[in-house]
């Protein structure tokens, strides 16, 4: 399965809904999307990963890159993920300490810390 991307706005947050596989082939598309959003002034991003079937280190690199970009504008990048196999990758790389990970988009949108 290829990567699918769609965005919508809720208040000052931009939700990026990602589906399919994020790997060495598809990660550049996600990178482009995040860069474009930040360039267009969206600095508070919520990446909804509930539809993601596969994530590798290339995908992690893109998410870290996105976080760096929004932080440069005092923004935020939150993740929504309940899937154990995806969460495991964040855990073994220590990135659970870097990204706020939420169980629902509503929770991520409401978060303000």
């Amino acid at each position: 399965m290829d990567l699918s991307l769609s965005t919508r706005t809720v208040g000052d947050r931009t939700i990026v809904e990602v589906g399919g596989e994020i790997d060495v082939y598809t990660a550049p598309k996600l990178r482009e999307q995040l860069v474009e959003l930040v360039n267009d002034g969206s600095y508070h991003l919520v990446v909804d990963m509930e539809g993601v079937d596969f994530l590798d280190s290339t995908g992690l690199g893109v998410l870290v890159g996105g976080l760096k970009r929004v932080r440069a504008h005092e923004g935020s990048l939150r993740l929504v993920c309940n899937q154990e196999r995806i969460l495991k990758i964040f855990r073994i790389t220590g990135l659970t300490k870097v990204f706020p990970i939420h169980t629902s988009v509503d929770e991520a949108v409401a978060a303000t810390d």
């Binding site: 590798d56 280190s57 290339t58 992690l60 690199g61 990758i89 073994i92 790389t93």
Partner: peptide, 9 residues
């Protein structure tokens, strides 16, 4: 860097 992250994973 990504290659090294891959090895870490």
């Amino acid at each position: 860097d990504e290659g090294e992250m891959g090895l870490a994973v």
